[in-house]
Design a binder for these strands. Sequence first.
DNA 1: CGAAAATTTGACATGACTCAACTGGAGTGG
DNA 2: CCACTCCAGTTGAGTCATGTCAAATTTTCG
Lengths: 197, 197
Amino acid sequence: MSIQALIANFDKYLPLNDEEREALRLCVVERKLRRKQFVLQEGEVCKHYTFVVEGCFKKYHVDTKGVEHNLQFIAENDWITEVDSIHNRKPSKAYIEAIEPAIILQISQRDLYDLLAKFHKLERIFRVIIENRYVALENRLLQTISETAEDRYLSFMEQYHDLASRLPNTQIASYLGITPEFLSKIRGKLSKKTEKS
Amino acid sequence: MSIQALIANFDKYLPLNDEEREALRLCVVERKLRRKQFVLQEGEVCKHYTFVVEGCFKKYHVDTKGVEHNLQFIAENDWITEVDSIHNRKPSKAYIEAIEPAIILQISQRDLYDLLAKFHKLERIFRVIIENRYVALENRLLQTISETAEDRYLSFMEQYHDLASRLPNTQIASYLGITPEFLSKIRGKLSKKTEKS
DNA sequence: CGAAAATTTGACATGACTCAACTGGAGTGG
DNA sequence: CCACTCCAGTTGAGTCATGTCAAATTTTCG
């Protein structure tokens, strides 16, 4: 069963014992999603912590002009979180949407809180997971305020080349904070450069 | 003693009992810093978790051209963290520098780990602290990729008006990811606008 | 296959940076 | 108290980065 992937993911942080595994098994629910289905929509309170077994998601906000801004892509063996909504029970400002057919595992907010209260080890694992996220996000912010769009695009392609190949450029442009047209121009310029050499 | 401020800060998350307070007291060290002194410099491994009792700090990276990029300002009753460096024992890529005379409390990495292992409650508090940071950072990233520099400046001034009054505009510009000259032009434009009304 | 979405391209407009010059405090030493 | 320096802030001209809009083309998915 696909919960093995989730347990393997935890084990990378700290190995779980049988009791902890069993507790997880009892509260994890599997779901399948088609393209364009939502894990979370704006205005909803996020009620589940979600682990991606298969497929790929985007988390984005929609601004007042109706333009989408991608905050994150989430693929296999990673956690989907809308931290502010799930922990503070606030309506989400973000959408989380499948961009490929997907299989996910979900733990309800209630069950998660019980697990965290009962197992110090899980509390630690979730602390470390969010810390790693924080580091990645801070690096991205640094790039965003200090580098040109072309450099950010190159970094992204280098760091996430496997992910990038599954994404339309429109989505990458939104993630980088530029328009699809401008990304296309960057790509045009870069391919001319590499042709020459 | 200034450790009261630290305990009060924790209590806002979860009230500490006497044992936990005592354990904290035993490992917290107070330091005073003058302007331009560093809590952490590039290349050093971060060895302390730091709480700001008084004063204000900036955390920044220096790029290959020697330009500083401010990632964060940290003032009273807040935590200074270089997450990647302290937890993964990697040399820091950031500087953390006092921009006012300051009083801080520090817990060594070693002591912190003991505390987190011993007290589940502290583990939770640190999880929640980093989660809140994450949320704030994500909002800032969203603004950075979706809004114009003028709007980001206005948001910053609204959200951190008390902090902003203590900072030179150069530092704010660096935080917003723009040049000081351009910020000056934005300010000029805005003051013309408000004059009219 | 057919509709919808993604991509490219070009002309033009605006945002933001660079560089250089100038202004006006805030120390600092005489 | 003055002369001096140093740094933050402002301003303007020119340039580069990026956005907007529209049209044509290609790809993708149902």
